[in-house]
């Protein structure tokens, strides 16, 4: 592990979608890093830009969307500059692989499982059909699929949802990648299957020492599996840091709200708590802190631009109040002018 160079760095990523209703600013300057062997959880509501950010990493943003700013570096090499666009095609599927939300539609319905695993091996590892089949069987065993030989000849519609997601994971692991991006890998599955898939993921992560980005709405999953967590809101990261510490001591009012809104099994008498209001319109995002319209501690300073401010070792938050109260302002020009709380 070289602490100086993280495996993946995303810096000020700007992604816009050009629609009839206007320009949707799906990602408004997202920055995060993933270290070697680390699991980063990205949480946030639907539409907060989680998926867009990781699809940008994979070079999968397509029309009407566009990457319009910022940089993504994998092992120090850019994936978005002109040379990077070529580089990303070599890297994806081989060094970075992705597990998608819906295993029902993510596998090609008219190819057998075997073909879909071996084609990746043949392409990236230049393997022949025979060895590739053997390796495919190994991979299916690795993800705990019984009777792997039989499965190779089956089509996706002949497998259950959980089984298909295991196949997706097997394909993702095929070329021994260094980073796996799992985009809500359990959302479309039954609750019992969800637990199995997550367990499999964390087990593989530990065994193979890969880095993982796990996108989810489920804070419980993040607490259980992730080393670090990034909370996204309205196309920006609003809080990022060590998972345990963020959960123990959330700083941003939105993070606090999210944690409060998670029902806990210990306290069944508790009523469900929700965050008042609705997420902002990303065509016309509010100036300053995007959460301010819903925030119960809103101050005048919140209307100004907020930057991600460090508030301790490996912890950053994008909140005016927090920046005022806890640490000296990082950008005096932007903070400081407002009234002291």
């Amino acid at each position: 592990m070289t602490p100086s160079l993280p495996l993946l760095e995303v810096e000020n990523l700007v992604v816009n979608f050009y629609t009839r209703g206007g320009v949707v600013q799906a990602s408004r300057g997202v920055s995060f890093q993933v270290g070697h062997g680390e699991t980063l959880g990205i949480v946030g509501e639907s539409g907060s830009g989680k998926t867009v950010a990781v699809q940008a990493v994979m070079g999968l943003i397509s029309s009407p969307g566009r990457i319009e700013g910022g940089d993504i570096r994998f092992n120090g090499r850019s994936l978005v500059d002109p040379a990077g666009r070529k580089y990303v095609r070599q890297v994806r599927g081989k060094e970075i692989s992705m597990i998608f939300q819906d295993p029902m539609t993510s596998l090609n319905p008219v190819f057998t499982i075997g073909t879909q695993i071996t084609e990746v091996l043949c392409h990236h590892m230049s393997m022949d059909k025979g060895p590739a089949r053997l390796r495919a069987m190994e991979l299916l065993e690795l993800v705990d699929i019984n009777a792997p030989k039989k499965r190779l000849g089956q089509y996706p519609h002949e497998l259950s949802g959980g089984m298909r997601q295991r196949v997706m994971i097997a394909i993702a692991l095929a070329c021994e990648p260094r980073l796996i991006i799992a985009d809500e890998p359990t959302t479309a599955l039954d609750v019992t299957v969800q637990a199995q898939i997550l367990e499999l993921l964390s087990d593989l992560q530990a065994r193979l020492n890969v880095s993982v980005i796990l996108i989810t709405h489920d804070l419980g999953v993040v607490a259980q599996l992730c080393h670090r967590v990034a909370v996204m809101y309205a196309g920006r990261i609003i809080e990022v840091g060590d998972a345990d510490r963020v959960f123990a001591d959330p700083v941003h009012p939105y993070t606090r709200g999210l944690i409060r809104a998670t029902p806990s099994l210990e306290d069944v008498t508790e009523r469900m708590v929700s965050i008042e209001g609705v997420p902002p319109d990303l065509i016309r995002p509010p100036a300053g802190c995007a959460f301010s319209p819903r925030c119960d501690q809103v101050k005048e300073g919140c209307r100004r631009h907020q930057s991600l401010t460090p508030i301790g070792e490996d912890r950053h938050v994008r909140c005016w109040c927090a920046a005022q109260g806890k640490v000296p302002p990082a950008e005096p020009a932007l903070v400081g002018k407002g009234p002291r709380p």
Partner: peptide, 10 residues
């Protein structure tokens, strides 16, 4: 729409 308007909107 996206095809025709993206340029001018940008």
């Amino acid at each position: 729409f996206a095809r025709h308007m993206a340029g001018s909107m940008r």
